[in-house]
Amino acid sequence: MTEQEKPRLAEEMEEMEYEPLLPVEKKLIIWSITLGVVLLGVLTWVSYTFFPVP
């Protein structure tokens, strides 16, 4: 690939088509964050209960 043929970042950005955020994507994002927050509580409890600071 020559220098001229290499896609430039700016061109790539311009060519990008708009895709609205799909409901399924929203659902996955919410699930991921919710799971993260719930696990934060669980893992903090496990850490402090079973792996206490010596």
Partner: peptide, 14 residues
């Protein structure tokens, strides 16, 4: 290990 579970689930989604 706990810290990275959190990082994956929260960071990536946001």
């Amino acid at each position: 290990l706990c810290a990275i579970v959190e990082a994956y689930l929260i960071y990536w989604a946001v």
